[in-house]
Simulated scan of single mutants.
Amino acid sequence: MAGRWSRLSGPTARFAAVDWQRWHNEYDRPGSGLARRLSAVQGQVRAALDRAPAGAVRVISLCAGQGRDVLDVMAGHPRRADVRARLVELDPRLSSFAEERARQLGLQDQVEVVTGDAALIDQYGGMVPADMVLVCGVFGNISDEDIAATIDTCPQLCETGATLIWTRHRGEPDLVPQICEWFEARGFERVWVSDPDAGFGVGVHRFTGEPQPLIPGRTLFSFVSGGV
């Protein structure tokens, strides 16, 4: 899951002077908020694979960071051989970590790591409608308007019955209840949301509608400084 950065709108991105590799080290610190959030997301990825129907399972991850939420679950899951995943991450250091991790786990033939702007919907062509969509580390870094617009576009990414996993911090203003309402107004059924006092926000929704055709050329969101 990607960390925080600032970027200009459009396909050209500019990163703040932050060592994102170091930032991701918080995932390895037992008891940290990021470590607990990662565990929660991985648990929901595992549960989504458990309930996926027989056959191929397509997974896409927006702003995938080091890819730990998907890769580490895939490696030990009984459905491992069924999964094909595309992880999109703008920071080349993070995407390189994900590629190497996929190789270490023997998943290189099943996982495509794209170093590019996850906000560009064209990145997902050929992989949608997907059976699982991860939007983690995104909603805490974009405007409320872009959150709503991204949710509006999610039916272009999701197969009927797809699981969509998302994150958003619970700091004030706590937008998690509103995000749930936006999803549910667009054909997504709530599966699970972390407790408000958990110290992090993770939500899971199931798409009950019909997939919409992917409309190319669209930018879903623009990152601004914020909290994941």
Rank of each mutant, 00 (worst) to 15 (best):
L214T: 01
M1D: 10
V113P: 02
G203E: 04
Y124M: 09
V88M: 01
W23T: 11
D82C: 02
G43H: 12
G137P: 01
L120S: 11
I142Q: 03
D152H: 09
T167M: 06
R206F: 12
A52V: 02
T208Q: 15
F200M: 09
F221V: 09
L38G: 05
T160A: 13
Q110F: 05
G3F: 06
R206M: 12
D152A: 13
E145A: 14
V135K: 05
A85E: 05
S95D: 04
H205W: 13
G106K: 04
G217S: 00
A81Q: 13
Q66C: 12
A130Q: 04
W20M: 15
G187L: 08
V41L: 10
P11I: 07
R101N: 11
P213K: 05
P11D: 13
G226E: 02
Q66G: 10
H77S: 05
G10C: 11
G187S: 09
G43Y: 08
P53W: 09
F139G: 03
P30M: 07
P173N: 07
R103Y: 07
E112Q: 14
F221G: 04
S225Q: 14
I60W: 03
V224A: 11
F207I: 05
Q156E: 14
W192F: 13
V176I: 08
S39W: 10
G217I: 00
V18Q: 13
D72F: 02
E159F: 07
S222T: 15
E189Q: 14
S143N: 03
P155M: 12
R58Q: 13
T153V: 15
R190S: 14
E189Y: 12
S32H: 04
V224Q: 11
E112A: 14
A54Y: 00
A48Y: 08
P53H: 08
L34S: 09
D50S: 03
Q178E: 12
F207T: 01
V73R: 08
S225K: 00
E189A: 15
V111F: 02
R103K: 15
V57S: 04
G227F: 15
E189G: 07
L34R: 07
V59K: 03
R7Q: 13
P196L: 10
D91L: 13
S96L: 10
F221M: 07
R14V: 12
P173T: 02
I151P: 06
H24W: 04
Q110C: 08
R170K: 08
P196S: 10
R51W: 02
V128N: 09
A118H: 04
F207L: 11
T163Y: 02
W20H: 15
T167L: 02
D144K: 03
P173M: 04
A64M: 05
T208M: 15
Q21M: 15
A35L: 12
W5F: 14
G126I: 09
R58H: 12
M127D: 11
V176Q: 01
V135P: 01
R79M: 06
R29H: 10
A35R: 10
V224I: 08
G187A: 02
D50E: 08
G203P: 03
V57F: 06
